[in-house]
Amino acid sequence: MEFLRPATWDEALTLKAELPQAVPIAGGTDVMVELNFDRRRPPALLDLGGVAELGGWESDGAVVRLGASVPYTRIIEELSGPLPGLALAARTVGSPQIRNRGSVGGNLGAASPAGDSHPPLLAAGRGVQVEAASVRGTRLIPIDAFYLGVKRHALEPDELIRAVRIPVADGPQQFSKIGTRNAMVIAVCAFALALHPDDRTVGTGLGSAAPTPRRAVEAEEFLAGALAEGGLWESGGALDGAVARRFGELVAAAASPIDDVRGSAQYRRHALAVMARRTLAWCWAEYGERLERSAA
C-alpha cells in the first residue's frame, strides 16, 4: 500500500486525480478501523494531515466555512455559538482522543449512517453545502444530495472534500443521541432539530435510522405549519402537547431502521419519537426565552 503525503491542496488534488482509488485520511478514526479489520485494502492512502488549510475555519457572519479536517474538539471549543447543533453532536463523538483527531470531513467521506455530524448538518438548513474539489474545479453539493446509500456519497472518484459551508444558526438547535453506555458509543440512533425563525422553517436530521442520514421532511413541514398556524413564531406561546406528539410520530415514521447488534428497529423508532419531542421542547423553550430577551 502506498502512503501519499501531499504538502499542499493542489498536490493533493493532483494525486487524487492520478490515483482515484487512493483513500483520503485525516484523523484516521474511521479509515484505520476499516484497515485494521481488513474490510478494505486500498492501493494507497492519501494523508491530508500536511494540508494546512483543511484544518481551519472562517466565517462571514452568515456562513461558516469549516475546513474538512477541523477536529471535533475545536468545533466544540470554537463553534458552539454559530453552529450549536454540530457542536452538541461533536461532544458525543467517541472519546477525547477521537475528538482530537476526527473531523466532519472524515464523517462525510465515510458517509456512515451512524456518523454523528450528519443529523445536525441536515437540520442546519438547505444552505449546507459540501465543497467538493478536484483538478477539474470546485463544486458545491447540497447536503440533501450528498448521501446516496450506506457508506456511499456524491463525490466523484477524483474529488476531495475541501470544506463544508454551514449557515450560522438563526434559531435554537439541538442534538440528541442514544447509546447503550454513557460515553464512547456509536449511535443506536440520533436526532437533530433546528428552528429557522428567519424563514420560518424547521430542520431535522436522523442518524442510524435508515441506510443514509436523512431528514424527516413531513415532520418539518408539519411543525413549521403548526407554528405558523398558531402564530407561535411571533408569540413564542406554549406548544400544544398534541403537536409535539404528532411531530414525534412523523419523525419516527420517516425512519427506515433495521434490527442489528446495537438495537432493534422498533426501539429506534420509539427513541426517535421521544428525542424529537424532547428536543422540540428544549428548542421551543429557548426560542421563547430569546423572544422575551429581544422584547425586553
Binding site: L88, R91, T92, Q174, F175, S176, K177, I178, G179, N182, A183, V185, V274, M275, R278, A281, W282
Partner: peptide, 13 residues
C-alpha cells in the same frame, strides 16, 4: 443524567 453527553434527557423521564 442517563445518556450523559449524548444529551438525551434534561431530566425528563
Amino acid at each position: 443524567l442517563p445518556g450523559a453527553l449524548s444529551n438525551s434527557t434534561h431530566g425528563e423521564g
